[in-house]
Nucleic acid binder design. Structure first.
Lengths: 201, 201
DNA sequence: ACCTGAACACCGTTCAAGT
DNA sequence: ACCTGAACACCGTTCAAGT
């Protein structure tokens, strides 16, 4: 062995991301390890450290991928709705659906880097920004008379809320029984919030 | 050594919880380890495993403590307010304040057990339930005409929302600059949601 | 230049052996 | 009965040595 050159650097990077994504989806973020990723790639750990600075690097890049996928899903869901309000609900349900179907990959999004003093890479923060851009656009349609600042704040309030409900529900901390209830709670949040947006001049 | 009997079983349990809490507060949940806890107690790892089934056990018990403390804080904050709406805002600010001051201990609350198939102990779920009870009581005062089911759903929607905003903000994923903005976003959520509760007959 | 394999300092968990 | 110390199978990360 040594000096195989079977794959380009970029190929290796993609292989690592694929392997990591597979392991997270199958066993969860905490079960991820450098050795498992490397072995799934058919390489040794050492090689992984030529591709990424450390494990956190790898994870954040997997998360960026997941976020891109989620963004695309939301975009599709909000594309063709009869009216603006229903677009917000559609996006919310798309979010919940994504979180339910890819629970482990989705929960890695916020599970990771909470205590981090590590700076999130631009690539990742841009994905987050574009997510809020989408929600802002929807809310803009719902209440066109509001200022950009109001809309920005509202988007973060509402979407942070949706995300919070999902986190609690999927880790059994929302104190609810059935999973259908998650949708009800989310509808309550979104519906009431939108009503509030309309009511407050 | 061996057979010291310096401390009762319950004393040992409390020492372990204290040690774990200290380490989480100082270095974060991911830095917690059985060996560190044991060494802080002045015992070996083996002893820890007579007190707890596994590390997750210990963590969930630290979390139950944190939650009890948080509940007490919320109760105090919501105790003496001029009116019901302002009580909700006061509780929200108390929550944000607690999360900011004890970030690592607070984030351990939801960081832990996301992928767990582990059943949460009754002790813990009861703390969660009593938290929602508090929020329900506040919302009940705001809109006394609503059914218990409506209130229950609203409490989970609103409080899940507050929690979601905090998670995102404190892990730099809310796409905001300053920490004061967190309060603004939370006020937007709570204010608009309460307005919505009033507007929807 | 690319990759390996071994090393270092850690993990969670178990359990025979000591008092 | 209580506690230790060593063991097992893992970690993340580094880096000399091989091709």
């Amino acid at each position: 062995m040594a000096r195989r050159n079977d794959h380009s650097r970029e190929e290796l990077r993609q292989m690592a991301l694929d392997a990591a994504q597979f392991i997270i989806e199958a066993q969860g973020l905490t079960a991820l390890s450098a050795r498992k990723v490397a072995s799934r790639m058919g390489y040794t750990v050492g090689t992984l450290y030529r591709l990424f600075e450390h494990l956190d690097d790898l994870i954040v890049q997997v998360n960026a991928r997941t976020l891109a996928e989620l963004n695309a899903t939301l975009e599709r869901a909000a594309a063709d709705c009869p009216d603006a309000e229903r677009c917000v609900h559609a996006a919310t349900h798309a979010y919940i659906d994504f979180a339910s179907r890819h629970t482990r990959r989705w929960s890695a999004l916020y599970e990771h880097g909470i205590e981090a003093d590590i700076q999130l890479p631009r690539h990742f923060t841009e994905q987050i920004a574009s997510m809020y851009d989408q929600v802002e656009a929807l809310l803009q349609s719902v209440t066109p008379q509001r200022s950009a600042e109001d809309i920005a704040r509202a988007a973060r309030a509402l979407w942070g809320g949706v995300q919070g409900i999902c986190v609690l529900a999927l880790s059994d901390k929302l104190d609810i029984d059935r999973i259908e209830t998650l949708s009800e709670v989310a509808d309550s949040l979104v519906g009431t919030y939108l009503a509030g947006l309309g009511a407050r001049h």
